[in-house]
Design a protein around this nucleic acid. Sequence first.
DNA 1: GCAAGGTC
Length: 672
Amino acid sequence: MNIKDYILVIAEKPKSAEKIAYALGNPKKYRINGVPVWFVMRGTSRFVIAPAAGHLYTLHTESKGFPVFDYKWVPKYIVEPESIFTRKYLNVLSMLAKNAKEYINACDYDIEGSLIGYMIIKNIGDIKRSKRAKFSSLTASEIVRAFNNLLPLDYNMIEAGYCRHILDWLWGINVSRMLMSIYRSVFNEKRILSAGRVQSPTLSYVVNIDLQRKTHVPVPYAYPSIKIFIDNKIFKLIPIDSPFNSLSDAKEYLENIKRDPRATVLDIIVRDERIEPPHPFNLPDLQSEAHRIYGFTPYKTQKLAEDLYLEALISYPRTNSQKLPPTLNNREILEKLSQNIVYRTLVKTLLAETRGILRPNNGPKEDPAHPAIYPTGEGTLKGLSKDHIKLYDLIVRRYLATFANPAVVQYVRIEFIVHGRRYYLSTNIVRSRGWLQYYPYIHFNGEEISLKLLRKGLQIPIHEAKIVIHFTKPPHLPSKISLVKWMEEKGIGTEATRAEIVETLFKRGYLYMRGRGSGVSELGILISFLLKDYVEELISVELTRKFEERLNMILNMKAKCDDIVEEAKEMLLKYINRVKSLDIQTLRAEISKYIEMSDNNGRRCMICKRSVYANNLCIFHNIALENIRSAYETWRKFGFSWTQYLEKLLKLKSTGSYVKEVCRHLIKQGEF
DNA sequence: GCAAGGTC
Ligand SMILES: [Zn+2]
């Protein structure tokens, strides 16, 4: 390659490079060492568009131990074996950078993209001869507009990205090393442990749920169970009013019914409801639906979607947007999709019922760099697994559905009154399937209720009435998908990282699969509580808020990265010095609070080997005891003596394990 | 060896 006098355009990834190249003119594609690059003339200027593959540089240290503050930037492929694929991208960019007369950072317009391009130009190009292309989407007109209005390098964004990297690195590496050091000194065993701004609050969330379950004391409540006949079909009425909290109130109510066993129809509501089509998929919604419909974990869905993207079957999947770009040629995509026999009829129906007016039901969620996920109509499914095809099918159907007509569902609700308490029956009947034809994964139809004999004020004999005692249940163990959703809701992690970070918690042995839920290991509990004791900031999502606030200050030139990094180092030093000042006995004593150590020589819980916290019990058994005591008040109103109560708790499935252990202990002790 | 963030 002897051409000089060209401008090197750096894209974040190959797919973006291609779009940029085609927006700028009529490009010619080459492959250098397996990396695609595009040459294009624009006016009298020659552009060479070459891709990165995300971050090509990362932070690294050679130092052992902690605190560790001497990081440096190095090519990623050198220090991360799993990033070896970035080597060829960096090599091709280096080669092209040598003779380039100018450099344009055309990575995604966010802090990470600004940093990706900057690091490349700084290391293998020349920042004095560089510019930034700023576009909000990768459409031809946006790209052209950006190249007609090239900006100087966006140093504020670069600095914010730079700072985000360093902060996460400092917190993550230092605290991880501190945990490993504590673990090794106490257990005389090496073990890989980790902590971080995103993973640690997530772990702590699961540990809290696990603790709630283990210390759960079911509390009784009573609902009337009333059955009536409507047109020879039996129905159980659903209570509207709150339950009885004492057995005597419930029994009194039942007596009233026995005296006068009639239900009166209060109201009959029949109305048609329009159910709008679903929004186009973003990654969280896709992960959620693939889990609901096919049982895929969020990580699996993400990997499958990435494969489909690399096969050009779908658009970029790591997006939070629920909006299809207004410039998207949906007509053309539909025509291509209809070449697949599976979708031919569906596409035909869709074009007929929309009369060709394709307006997606875009949702509110946005993404700084990418639109919602849609099928391209291109690529081939040949050689892909059954699961790939399932996911592709889901994406195509969702895409079709979002253009379709609303579904019309007839909603029927009948309200009753029985001795001053209200009940209802309800059902749905799909009147017009609309978008459900394309996306038939939601079932609206309920049991049919015949309305022909019903009218307001009608009194219907009660067929059966009894009081049913229910017990409160603890929260479920969160599934992987609910953890990803929780992270999204709390605003930690990104589309690209959440599912993977959940997997990290499993890889570390903090969590394990218990059915579809995530159980917490003793190690997970220990790590979560040690962090709470020694680095409390790290188990809260507020640390992310604090980072965001600092990064925003950098963006607004109200702070410098160096000062923020200094602040973080000071905080970390404070935490680290405190832990370093503790002797091994103190650490052992601390750990003995949370897990059972066979050589715990301190005062032990009467039930387990953990150290005493209060009432001669460890921290967990003591919570259980307090819950047992405070829940008894309600149980008493249901006629349970203290002993009967404890014995009943032992029999109930939803009673927490720590609670059962305390019950056995109390019974054995004869504390009646 | 450890994070979280990009992406093949
Ligand atoms: Zn205990």
